[in-house]
Design a protein around this nucleic acid. Structure first.
Lengths: 217, 217
DNA sequence: GGGGGCTGTGACCTCGCTGTCACCGTGATC
DNA sequence: GATCACGGTGACAGCGAGGTCACAGCCCCC
């Protein structure tokens, strides 16, 4: 899962980002509205966490533009204002959800996850393939009743591959979908992560390699 | 991601190419319009970076030809002229985006990325012929329920032949369409690959030979 | 401060793919 | 039947994509 945090208060933005990363979510940060639009043009996000009072380009405007390309990115509006009127306005603009500051971090994560699940509507709440079952909401994965202890990155990669439903996923696509923009494009961390994931998934092997193509489940 | 830079100023072309490569993007260079068309005929690019003032064949013409085959390659026009009129004309010809020189390199990269994201709305789901089925997205081929373990080259050749829908495809055409430009034109690797492919496809034979002509499925 | 898990890096290795070459089979032509 | 041209086949060597491993930095938690 990949999220953009658009928030001009540096401390808050980085705190949110840190927290989400600890949950295995790839996070980029934009410090103003123009920056947010630039990021959105370049990458695909599952969710944009959007502060309403952004400098340069107002949050409402960013939201409106996001609605225009009908990419199925979801918008979670953050705002200091807490009146019902604001809430209604926010949703009217096209935000998918709305969270008044100050908020509880747990709740933020829960809402982000809920929205992300909606951004790929075809997928059922738990993903499975053969005797492998992955529950994105609970962050658990089991193979034939045996729970798997996956790290956040490993989990994210597995989730992505399952979501692709047998399509071949290139290393580049994985980098784009699971890592954040700081990732070195020439890294071999994808190879390594796939290797570790395979080791944990055990036999019989589930992740196939397609030479010159990528990986497939 | 693969990009073609069509730009006749050698220094600028190589500088752009270097920069994009540093971003992990595969880049080919064409120094004039005819060269650009040749590259485009042979390879599939996500984005073509097209200088408008190209020698031999003008950028506008290259762009028009790109629109004609409905490959979903995106065109980013570069131009020295900056008037609104030019901009409108450029887009009218069918460019997907438009960047006036001089430009900020960061912006160039961002726009290339944004275009590339738009460029891959999945190809037709599967190709088939008789009991043979080929799924390009999953990179799988089956013959009557039996999955075939094809190498990348074999798969590409099979895909090309199926795409030709019974037309006779010459060895030269296959070389152009499936191999890269470094391929030795006198090679007999096509013969060899066809041989291996036939062996894997099994009986009854699907690939016919047309003497002095080429192959047909 | 120290231990432990998670990640990314760089070095090294392995193995399958691929292009080449030499040779064979076959059908056409004389 | 001899010759010729073209296509098929099998052996082989080099290469490069992908796998593996050890290690170091980082962060968290005790």
């Amino acid at each position: 899962m990949r999220v953009l945090v658009a928030e001009d208060h540096g401390r808050l933005a980085t705190a949110i980002a840190e927290g989400l990363r600890r949950e295995g979510i790839a996070v980029d940060i934009a410090f103003d509205g123009a920056d947010a639009l630039r990021h959105v043009a370049v990458h695909r996000y599952d969710v944009v966490l959007l502060d309403r009072d952004l400098p340069q380009v107002h949050g409402d405007e960013v939201c409106r533009r996001l609605r225009e390309d009908r990419s199925n990115t979801r918008v979670l509006m953050l705002t200091a204002a807490t009146t019902i009127r604001d809430r209604v306005e926010g949703l009217g603009i096209g935000a998918d959800d709305y969270l008044p500051k100050p908020f509880d971090f747990e709740e933020l994560v829960a809402r982000v996850r809920a929205l992300a699940r909606r951004s790929t509507p075809a997928l059922p709440p738990t993903l499975s393939h053969g005797d492998l079952t992955v529950d994105p909401a609970r962050r658990t994965a089991t193979r034939g009743d045996v729970p798997l202890a996956l790290s956040p990155k490993e989990f994210a990669v597995l989730e992505y591959l399952l979501g692709a439903e047998g399509r071949v996923v290139s290393a580049e696509e994985l980098l784009e979908g699971v890592w954040d923009e700081a990732a070195n494009p020439f890294t071999n961390t994808v190879k390594t992560t796939i290797g570790r994931l395979r080791a944990k998934l055990g036999e019989p092997a589930l992740i196939e390699t397609v030479r010159e193509g990528g990986y497939r489940i």
